[in-house]
């Protein structure tokens, strides 16, 4: 029993690391650009399907296939960005439109709804064969290496002039324009980078799980938000950007551990989406209720007892 739980934990951390890449992408739109980007469900599957077909049909090198899949995600993000900024479609709707369109695109790419990847060479089984490590350890290793590189690059990028302009656009568009920033461009750029990371995660996940599926992106945005919020609730709203990004990844791992635990406890996998939705709803409302309680506790009618109002 204990061993099976530990095994499940190990798998959960590996999955959490790979899904954490997606959560970092969502962090860029949700927290930095202040856009709830629903492209994610489509671009996650796009990454998985593109990578899957390149591996299974063309027999491309796994690393190259993963990178091309990420670029497909960049393009998907740019489409949402153009719909939003050039056609003035509200961001949420622009994301939904791209996501819907991507479903057909993904079916076209894959040519069917599911592509097994068990017999092809992937990033993971390549390393398993080369090192002889267990697959669960390899997925943790790959995830951690990719995440360290990504967090370092994102930390650098959002400190540059260009990255600062994206942050300013998300914080105050009016200010950004009046200081000479082409806010449309920076929104498109942010959405493109974000969805590139999401597709990268999708490509790695499909290699890890051994199949690419046009439905693999359903609910991805909610899982990403869950990771961000769990990270913030547990680690607080820290100031250092690298710490914030790490908290998102840890949130992703903790989410996977929670999932592994409830599945071990006998939750039906069919109910997983409902569980995730409920978890995010609870996590989003916790800060609000805590604030209300704090407010109520500190209220005094007369301001007596040394309390200053």
């Amino acid at each position: 029993m204990i061993i099976s739980i530990l095994k499940a934990m190990q798998g959960a951390v590996g999955q959490g690391a790979l899904w954490g890449i997606m959560a970092l992408g969502i962090y860029i739109t949700y927290r930095i650009l202040d856009i709830a980007d629903l492209t994610v469900d489509g671009s996650f599957a796009l990454g998985g399907c593109t990578c899957g077909i390149l591996l299974a049909e063309i027999g491309l090198d796994p690393v190259a296939a993963t990178l091309i899949a990420s670029l497909a995600g960049v393009a998907a993000g740019a489409v949402t960005g153009i719909l939003h900024t050039q056609c003035r479609i509200p961001a949420i709707l622009a994301g939904i439109l791209t996501q819907l369109g991507l479903y057909s695109v993904n079916l076209r790419i894959l040519g069917k709804s599911n592509q097994p990847l068990l017999k092809v060479e992937t990033v993971f089984n390549g390393i398993v064969d080369a090192t002889g490590l267990e697959k669960a350890w390899v997925s943790i290793l790959v995830g951690v290496v990719v995440l360290i590189m990504l967090i370092a690059v994102l930390y650098w990028f959002f400190g540059t002039e260009m990255g600062s302009a994206i942050r300013a656009t998300g914080s105050n568009e009016n200010m950004a324009r009046s200081q000479g920033m082409n806010t449309n461009f920076y929104k498109i750029l942010g959405l493109a980078v974000s969805n590139g990371l999401v597709a990268l995660s999708g490509a790695l996940i499909s290699q890890h799980q051994g199949y690419a599926d046009v439905k693999q992106g359903i609910g991805a945005i909610v899982v990403g938000l869950a990771s961000i919020i769990i990270g913030e609730v547990l680690f607080g709203k820290r100031r250092n950007f690298a710490v914030k990004l790490s908290a998102v990844v840890l949130g992703s791992c903790i989410y996977r551990i929670i999932v592994a635990v409830v599945l071990q406890m006998g939750l039906n996998t069919d109910d997983m989406k409902l569980f995730t939705a409920a978890l995010v709803a609870v996590a989003l409302s916790v800060p609000t209720f805590l604030e209300k309680r704090r407010q109520a506790a500190s209220y005094s009618e007369s301001g007596e007892g040394g309390k200053t109002c």
Partner: peptide, 15 residues
């Protein structure tokens, strides 16, 4: 720093 770069191209040097 954002204001100091008004009217200039924003690249990949430090913000």
């Amino acid at each position: 720093a954002l204001a100091a770069r008004r009217g200039r191209s924003r690249g990949l040097s430090w913000g």
